[in-house]
Design a binder for these strands. Structure first.
Lengths: 154, 154
DNA sequence: ATAGATTATGGGTAGATGTGGTTAATTATC
DNA sequence: GATAATTAACCACATCTACCCATAATCTAT
């Protein structure tokens, strides 16, 4: 009985343990549909963070990747750079997933970690990286952000 | 039943308890349609306050957010800056919802709280912040406010 | 005016949740 | 094939949250 299926909102301050395990907030696990088989797909984000997709959402992305022609050097490079960071992970009885070392390095994760719902995916951030990145960006792009808010927020 | 479905007017002085719970005025709860499943969506306002939407109203906003491509840095930042403050909350038997800590911080809420009907959403203010903000704004923009009144009031 | 219903607010408790650690299973290495 | 190293499954516990009950104040209706 969930209200918003496969939809993630809110932010949570969690900790990465010494084995590289990370608990996924119960709120996020509980909105997953049965089809996801208790699994997520973790991959590299376009910002310096980790992106986590429900299995069924990732499968759509994967279908798109398959359509890309291997004749294009750009395509090959793009597919390679994302897929090498990608893996499917099941969460354990306590709701934790194992984060791969290359992703921990990419997102520069330490013990303290910020988990952010991004509607159809989840982001994992080093809190310091996030606040630095967002502060600069909002100063530069405030007008474009206002424009978006104007279009969407009722 | 109700005359103006999902429409909120009037203001109320309520208190945030030590557990971060806030009672939603019965007048506001009773105006919700069945489709809302006794739930609201709380999020960050564009002023230093909290915005509360009926679930069904938020779902329209969410649909728009889902359409934004993650390829755009501006889109990602926009989604992040709003959705990280967003959560769906069911009210308990007494009509209270739990306000998340990041929103309490953002709106600088103390015990005393002002709840304001804003037609299709509800605002939660720290009374002091509101009077300061409104005082400044009216001094600066009084002509524009008159203009708006002219357009809308019949 | 008064009884009954509704509403706002406070507090208690059982179950859910987050986190650390231990043991078993699997994979890798020599 | 034996052993070390890595990963996965299991257990324990402190904390937190959702849900329940209680009470005082306010409103409604006869």
């Amino acid at each position: 009985m969930t209200l918003n299926q496969n939809t993630f909102t809110g932010e949570f301050s969690y900790s990465l343990d010494t084995k590289g395990r990370l608990n996924i907030p119960a709120k996020f696990r509980n909105v997953l549909s049965k089809k996801n088989k208790n699994s997520f797909v973790i991959t590299k984000g376009m910002d310096p963070c980790i992106w986590i997709y429900p299995l069924v959402v990732w499968q759509n992305i994967e279908d798109e990747l398959k359509k890309l022609s291997s004749l294009s050097r750009v395509n090959r490079s793009f597919v390679r750079s994302t897929v090498r960071y990608t893996s499917t992970v099941k969460y354990d009885k306590q709701g934790r997933i194992a984060i791969t070392q290359n992703l921990i390095d990419y997102a520069k994760l330490k013990k303290e970690v910020l988990i952010i719902g991004m509607v159809n995916k989840i982001e994992i951030w080093n809190p310091k990286l996030l606040s630095n990145a967002e502060k600069e960006f909002h100063e530069i792009k405030s007008s474009e952000l206002d424009e978006l808010a104007n279009q969407i927020i009722l």
